[in-house]
Amino acid sequence: MKKLFLYVFVLSFLSSCISSKKLTYFQGEPAEKSDLYRLNNEPYRLQVNDVLYIDIKAENPEIVALFKNSESSTTTEGGEGLYFTGYTVDRHGNIRIPYIGDLNVLGYTEKEVREKIEQELSKYVKKVESLFVTVKLAGINFVISGEVGSPGTINLAQNQVSIVDAIASAGDITTYGDRENVVVVRKTLDGVQKFKINLLEIDVFESENFYVKPNDVIYVAPLKQKTWGFGATGLQTFTTLVTVFSFITTTILLIQTF
């Protein structure tokens, strides 16, 4: 009986601890630059629900002011402020600009949208060369949940957000998070897509899904050790197992007494 208890104790201890290999990011050696580097650095193409920051400047500020949503849209604001003063891509792929009306931007890059706006403004402004139009995506908005420090909806005011940026902005993955099983759910023009990313491997930097897209949903699954309820470290597991086996031994002794 004692040998059986010892065997079960050792087996449970070894299987319940979280090894350092499960917690160490970017293991291995980086591969040579591939074609994925080019794909990951291609400009983003706008989708429905994206929010744009658009600023227009010219010699005559009174004229260009007519084409702006509001004066506050020319200032630098966070994601919440730009929700009201920015230009949201509607479900038809259009943004609505005063006097210009609906302008289709679905699938366009920031540069292409800027050129379209300049072309429309040239109908109203005599000195086209004096126009200076700025078009930027109003940050990358995404949702992150699961085994992270601070789950929720996050907006990062960056042109590109990698999966590493996203995880870091959410307070990193907890000890019980499965770094091999980070799931990204993405809604595209072709439908909903689902990807799995392994953050333990250095090859993640070469993944075509390394960069987060606006409105992505990121989920970090828990390790099986969390379900077992033992502990993340060897000391925690040892303490838990000692408590459990002490309870079992005490129960057996009481039964034998009676």
Rank of each mutant, 00 (worst) to 15 (best):
residue 70 S to W: 08
residue 67 F to E: 04
residue 73 S to K: 01
residue 88 T to A: 06
residue 61 P to I: 10
residue 70 S to V: 12
residue 81 G to Y: 02
residue 102 D to M: 14
residue 88 T to C: 01
residue 70 S to T: 15
residue 77 E to C: 08
residue 52 L to P: 07
residue 93 G to W: 08
residue 93 G to P: 04
residue 75 T to V: 06
residue 51 V to P: 08
residue 67 F to H: 05
residue 86 G to T: 02
residue 88 T to D: 01
residue 91 R to N: 13
residue 105 V to R: 09
residue 96 R to P: 01
residue 77 E to M: 15
residue 52 L to I: 12
residue 83 Y to H: 05
residue 73 S to V: 08
residue 63 I to N: 07
residue 103 L to I: 13
residue 89 V to T: 04
residue 94 N to V: 02
residue 103 L to C: 08
residue 62 E to A: 07
residue 54 I to A: 10
residue 66 L to A: 08
residue 53 Y to A: 09
residue 108 Y to E: 12
residue 96 R to L: 12
residue 109 T to I: 03
residue 62 E to W: 10
residue 55 D to T: 14
residue 56 I to P: 03
residue 108 Y to M: 15
residue 104 N to E: 06
residue 83 Y to F: 09
residue 73 S to E: 05
residue 62 E to S: 10
residue 58 A to C: 10
residue 103 L to F: 08
residue 57 K to R: 15
residue 97 I to C: 03
residue 54 I to S: 05
residue 106 L to S: 12
residue 73 S to W: 02
residue 87 Y to V: 07
residue 91 R to V: 07
residue 109 T to H: 11
residue 60 N to V: 07
residue 94 N to T: 04
residue 106 L to M: 13
residue 55 D to W: 10
residue 103 L to D: 02
residue 87 Y to L: 01
residue 51 V to F: 10
residue 70 S to G: 10
residue 74 T to Y: 01
residue 52 L to S: 14
residue 88 T to M: 03
residue 100 I to A: 09
residue 53 Y to F: 13
residue 67 F to Q: 03
residue 67 F to M: 07
residue 76 T to A: 01
residue 82 L to W: 03
residue 90 D to K: 06
residue 101 G to A: 12
residue 73 S to L: 02
residue 105 V to N: 08
residue 60 N to P: 05
residue 109 T to K: 10
residue 59 E to C: 01
residue 68 K to W: 00
residue 57 K to C: 06
residue 75 T to D: 09
residue 76 T to H: 03
residue 84 F to D: 07
residue 110 E to W: 05
residue 96 R to N: 14
residue 63 I to W: 04
residue 99 Y to E: 12
residue 64 V to C: 01
residue 86 G to L: 01
residue 89 V to C: 04
residue 103 L to R: 05
residue 95 I to Q: 00
residue 87 Y to F: 09
residue 79 G to P: 01
residue 58 A to Q: 09
residue 78 G to C: 05
residue 53 Y to E: 11
residue 65 A to K: 14
residue 102 D to C: 02
residue 101 G to F: 08
residue 81 G to A: 06
residue 92 H to R: 15
residue 83 Y to Q: 03
residue 52 L to C: 12
residue 109 T to N: 10
residue 89 V to L: 04
